[in-house]
Design a protein around this nucleic acid. Structure first.
Lengths: 295, 295
DNA sequence: CCCTGTCATACCCGGCGGGTATCACCGCGT
DNA sequence: ACGCGGTGATACCCGCCGGGTATGACAGGG
């Protein structure tokens, strides 16, 4: 009565995402009618209207939006349970494969910190094998939540860290990256106000939650594209200090005085109990002592 | 294949908690054989041994312990999805009942802070109705996770705050509570070392995670019992400043110089999007400004 | 040694999840 | 205005699987 099968959640999430029973059914590999029926049963059992059917398409009600969010979380939790159990089972057998940690890192992240951490950890006695999983910055949170990754390196204020445990490692300033020939490139330092609204050189726009804020600058999809556009004199970008390592000869980096610091954190799912993970975090805390202690 | 129904999780959690198929089946309201079969199917599908069957009882494997922990979390998430969706659905209908927030508080907590917060919030325009749910200190985290409560007042270092969003409100020192006639009661202040190992007056033991650390002092189950035992000269306890409000004439409170501060936090589930909750947190932040901002 | 308590196996049945066919309804184009 | 396409809902059927009962296999204990 007051329980909910993951099957029902999968169905509802599919419909809520597609806003179209036919397409959702296709995605689920089933026919439309049983899907309609399942959603109706769900609404009846919850005693709540989830979808507004308007003859032409479907809209979510307030309760539907809540269930979409909560349902995704529950599905992630269930998927995480499967993954982590399977991994624990593999490592369980004596003489089996070495414990393994999956570390999710932003694909374009600085190599230095990562190498330093991996080298130090590998030197530890009975350290686990670490698989580095490069991915998008938004993907990291999903990977941690659903168990495909055990630990991640994240960057505030870009990542939210909400719902995870974390430890701050390293803070760095940010720089403006300009075309080498630009007048501003000669300056010793700049403020955010300086780089905003430079005539003819709009600030590049990064996606937040998959969508782009409106603005004049170009929409950036990856680091190479950004580098290209800056070199062509089409845009300017604000990036952390360590990004200097991938700059080209056609680029110039000027420190920003008032940009927020970017803090690298090591982040893991709350309640995690893996010994290997604890070892990695301990190593990180030893390499970068004196930062705050997460919560 | 790689998905897992909440039914299967419920079954496994029941067996893992009872460590006995028959009792677990009884708890689930079903017969033992189908439960056995379900667990076998689960193990086959996961490709992992979860239970060690020893002819006489059942033991968890490492993977089983992982699945117990992760499965509970997933079940909590699913239950939370149901509860929050139902609540959102009720508030959805225009002219329906006012939005409601369930606030979980430690039963023996100080009344002052709570009253201040509730009064200030009630005075806000379009504030929601707040239901105060007194409960045990360990229960709070479970209530928040499974959606029975929307927000809680917790106390570090007693609560862990792990996996939640929070905002620190008020820090307070701790005092030693002694029988009024005791020699130490005359002191202006004490250190932790002073109250530990007082001859004939062992430190009271509070449960942590339902279990008591070994030691000479009495095991405390509730505040009244503690007050009784102190008044009888059988024990001494360390409690936060605000607990002075429930002391008896037979008690004496002496400030401790080196006990960790107890910080009251307002805590809510990560990713919560309720407007009413946001209002309550804003009120709290206004009443107790300048503390840290959670994570 | 049998009895008791445990989990596993064998077998049957009913419900329900899913498929196919079709309906009801609306918007749109001609 | 009417027919057509596309939407979700309804009707009906079927096979599978989740659950029950009966029983087995096996280890400990009196």
């Amino acid at each position: 009565m007051d329980t909910l099968e993951t099957r029902e959640l999968r169905y509802f999430v599919a419909v809520a995402e597609e806003l179209h029973f036919g397409r959702a059914a296709g995605r689920l590999g089933m026919a439309q009618p049983p899907l309609s029926r399942a959603i109706q049963q769900l609404e009846r059992r919850l005693g709540v209207r989830l979808l507004e059917r308007n003859r032409r398409g479907v809209r979510l009600t307030g309760a539907g939006e809540v269930l979409l969010r909560e349902g995704r979380a529950a599905l992630d939790a269930a998927a995480a349970a499967v993954r982590r159990t399977r991994r624990a089972g593999g490592a369980d057998s004596p003489g089996g494969p070495r414990a393994r940690l999956v570390l999710a890192v932003k694909a374009a992240a600085s190599h230095e910190l990562l190498r330093k951490l991996l080298d130090a950890y590998a030197a530890e006695p009975d350290s686990a094998e670490i698989e580095v999983l490069p991915c998008g910055i938004r993907e990291q949170e999903e990977l941690l939540r659903d168990g495909r990754a055990d630990v991640a390196l994240m960057y505030t204020p870009w990542n939210s860290l909400t719902g995870f445990d974390s430890e701050a490692l390293e803070a760095e300033g940010q720089v403006a990256v300009l075309p080498a020939g630009h007048p501003l490139a000669a300056r010793e330092s700049l403020s955010l106000a300086d780089v905003r609204d430079v005539p003819g050189l709009p600030l590049a726009r990064w996606p937040t939650r998959g969508t782009y804020a409106p603005g004049p600058g170009p929409e950036i999809h990856n680091q190479t594209q950004l580098a290209q556009l800056i070199a062509l004199g089409r845009t300017v970008a604000v990036v952390p200090d360590s990004a200097r390592s991938w700059l080209w000869a056609e680029h110039a980096a000027v420190p920003l005085t008032d940009a927020p610091s970017v803090v690298t954190h090591i982040v893991w799912p709350a309640h995690s109990r893996s010994l290997a993970l604890a070892g990695l975090v301990r190593t990180a805390a030893r390499l970068w002592p004196g930062q705050n202690a997460g919560q």
